[in-house]
Amino acid sequence: MDSLRIAATSCSPLIDFDPATGILRIEGESYPENSFEFYAPVFAWLEEFLRQPAGRIVLSVGLSYLNTSSIKCMIDVLDMLDAAHGAGRPACVEWHYDSENDRALDMAEEFREDVSLPFEILAR
């Protein structure tokens, strides 16, 4: 399976998904014109990856801003990982946030409340 890499822009995050390590990195700001179109390759790649008998998957997030539709897309990604975790696939989230940004911490905590997989919130 090939890696998935989408370069960051001023309004969309870096997506870096390496099947060898099982790490999906999403970093930057996320307010693309059409979030669902932007995240479609991520959903497709993740679905295919989760069908493989591979090891653990780590979602490493470092998003400083998400618009409403990006939040919905992130919920969809988290739901996919949560379902995989519930089915026995090792999966976890490492959510990195700016310690100066209380809203970012609140958002991470809200996401953590919605899933059962291990979810670590890390200040930077």
Rank of each mutant, 00 (worst) to 15 (best):
V61A: 15
R56K: 14
Q52D: 14
Q52T: 15
V58E: 14
L50M: 13
P41L: 07
G28D: 03
A44M: 06
I23K: 12
G62D: 15
A44Q: 10
T68N: 10
F38W: 04
P19K: 10
A40N: 02
P41E: 03
L66I: 12
Y39M: 03
P19T: 08
S64Y: 10
E29C: 05
A20T: 05
G28K: 05
C73N: 05
S60H: 13
A40F: 03
S70E: 05
L63Q: 11
Q52R: 15
T21Y: 09
V42P: 07
S70V: 09
Y31R: 10
C73E: 04
A44G: 05
F49I: 08
P32D: 00
S69K: 07
D79A: 03
V77L: 03
C73Q: 03
L59A: 13
L78E: 02
R56Y: 10
I75L: 11
L46I: 10
N34M: 01
L78F: 02
G55C: 14
A54G: 15
R51K: 15
R25A: 05
P19V: 09
F36R: 07
N67M: 11
Y39A: 00
L50W: 10
F43W: 06
C73T: 00
P32K: 03
V61Y: 06
G28Q: 03
F17L: 11
R56F: 12
S35P: 07
Y65E: 12
R56Q: 13
E37Y: 02
P32Y: 01
A44E: 11
L59G: 08
N67C: 11
S60P: 02
V77D: 01
E47V: 05
P53I: 06
V77Y: 00
T68L: 12
M80S: 07
D18P: 09
V77E: 01
E48N: 14
Y65G: 14
S64F: 09
A20Y: 06
L24D: 02
F36D: 08
D79C: 00
A20L: 13
L59C: 10
R51S: 14
P41D: 06
F36M: 06
S64V: 10
A54H: 15
N34P: 00
G62C: 12
V58N: 11
